[in-house]
Design a protein around this nucleic acid. Structure first.
Length: 464
RNA sequence: GGCGGCAUGGCCAAGUGGUAAGGCAAAGGUCUGCAACACCUAUACCCCCGGUCCGAGUCCGGGUGCCGCCUCCA
């Protein structure tokens, strides 16, 4: 499998540190609000990467943190007049609600900053001791000049960074690029005791600490949005490698943004769509399909019709699934014919194509297109085949890649007795060519969300 | 100023130098009592100008336009 590594700006063959194990860390949300579509992209993308690696037989350990100590949380909590803890508890809960709705599997560990203060303090002490950090009046800063590789991830030199720096000038800092590891207590903020007095950790140190704690000093994959490359991930590299003297991450993966009118979707610009709101109108798998229809490193321009397009496309795939289920109900128990076997072999071949796409730097856009090619192959020939065995195999083969992408997971409830009766009555009406009554029943069922289709094999129904 | 990305049919979107995937929408047709599903058919001078090559959407040079990071941000 090849993965694009931001550190080297090339696609590289993926070789895990430990033979069949993969340790990956993905930056999780700052929990002060519901998450929006842009936030959802990495959650979905890395969820799919993780599923694929597991499918390939890797034992994946996946860590995604919650940032629950942060300026934005403090501000929001103060605005609402509740504690930071209460606010972050609420939105951690809301995170899981939306993530589960989107079919995002839980990480193996979801560590929170507030549960790791001691570990953070220890690492900061270590950095001070090694000369990579200094305490000024209860604020502890990372000494960027002590880490010669600073800038290697974002491909910036210290001089260039200083020239473009828009950071606040502070008398306390030796260098304007030095960043806070520990922030001195201020009125109205949560605090913990530390060797430097009361205070709270800065943003970047948490990921270094929690990544090391749960995955070790050197990990396989670290993921997140492109906007985290600098300063967040650059700073993580500086902290972790300074402390351990070892490489921090083998493969840095960064997803592109979701744009609205070609401008990055973000909270600060206000041009965002919350997943919570989108899910009121659209199915979760529609959102997944939209995001997976585009290569993860490319920008996704979100517009009015985006979700409708994906919704219609998804329906095409579901039609195949439902059709196969319907036909399996009406299938014979004989063994597959040679023609059926050949057909299935073509389908299976497409699973290889799917894997090739996934292994080319997680090209889910191509992987998704394979689903549609399978759909076409099935639709074109399925009416010729009647063996239950063949249909079941086609069904399994078609759903295998879909499952890895987290699609086509919904199952339909059977229609209730009354609906079944109406369908039967309509069949009788059609037999005696009473199309008035027939259409009446069809309209009635449509109102109840059930769509009827008359096929050569019988009446098919589906929920809309 | 530094670093990076993008530009492919009405829309979305892949594309490893060798006849331009796939989806959505619209059109015509087949099937159907009608419809729906499905299938078939047509539909792209790949932002511009140079260059390398037998051959370039793909490589090189130069433009144009748009965007991002360098401050919180997925």
């Amino acid at each position: 499998m090849k993965l694009y590594n931001t550190m080297t700006n090339t696609k590289e063959e993926f070789i895990p540190i430990h033979d069949r194990q993969v340790h990956m860390y993905v930056c999780g949300p700052t929990v002060y609000n519901y998450f929006h579509l842009g936030n959802a992209r990495p959650f979905i993308v890395f969820d799919v990467l993780r599923r694929y690696l597991a499918y390939k037989g890797y034992d994946v350990t996946y860590v995604q943190n919650f940032t629950d100590v942060d300026d934005k949380i403090i501000n929001e909590a103060n605005k609402e007049g509740i504690s930071s803890r209460a606010l972050s508890e609420k939105f951690i809960h809301e995170y899981f609600e939306d993530a589960h709705a989107l079919g995002i599997h839980d990480a193996d560990v979801h560590p929170r900053v507030s549960d790791h203060i001691e570990d953070i303090v220890r690492m900061i002490e270590d950095l001070i001791q090694k000369g990579y950090a200094y305490n000024k009046n209860g604020n502890v800063y990372y000494r960027v000049s002590a880490f010669p590789d600073y800038g290697k991830l974002s491909k910036q030199s210290l001089e260039d960074l200083v020239a473009g720096a828009r950071v606040e000038v502070s008398d306390e800092k030796e260098n304007p690029l030095d960043f806070a590891l520990w922030k001195k207590y201020k009125e109205g903020e949560p605090y913990w005791e530390s060797p430097w007095g009361r205070g709270r950790p800065g943003w970047h140190i948490e990921c270094s600490v929690m990544s090391k704690k749960y995955l070790g000093e050197t990990i396989d994959i670290h993921g997140g949005g492109q906007d985290l490359i600098f300063p967040h991930h650059e700073n993580e590299v500086a902290q972790s490698e300074a402390a351990s003297g070892k490489p921090f991450v083998h493969y840095w993966m960064h997803n592109g943004y979701i744009n609205v009118d070609n401008v990055k979707m973000s909270k600060s610009l206000g041009n965002f769509f919350m997943v919570r709101d989108i899910l009121k109108e659209f199915d979760a798998e529609t959102v997944r399909l939209l995001i997976l229809s585009i290569h993860y490193r490319n920008p996704l321009n979100f517009s009015d019709g985006s979700l409708e397009q994906s919704q219609n496309a998804l329906e095409r795939l579901y039609n195949v699934k439902k059709d196969l289920l319907f036909r399996m109900d009406h299938a014979s128990n004989r063994f597959s014919t040679d023609e059926e076997t050949a057909w299935l072999s073509n389908l299976t071949q497409m699973v290889r194509t799917f894997e090739n796409a996934m292994e080319d730097d997680l090209n889910t856009a191509n992987a998704v297109s394979v689903l549609f090619e399978m759909a076409k192959l099935i639709n074109t020939h399925v009416s010729d085949f009647t063996s239950k065995e063949a249909l079941q195999q086609a069904y399994d083969t078609f759903l295998l890649p879909a499952e890895i992408l987290g699609l086509l997971g919904k199952t339909e409830k059977l229609p209730d007795e009354e609906v079944t009766k109406l369908i039967e009555e309509r069949q009788q009406a059609r037999k005696r060519k009473d199309f008035g009554r027939s259409d009446e029943i069809r309209d009635e069922l449509k109102k109840r969300g059930i769509l009827l289709e008359d096929t050569r094999e019988g009446v098919k129904w589906k929920r809309i």
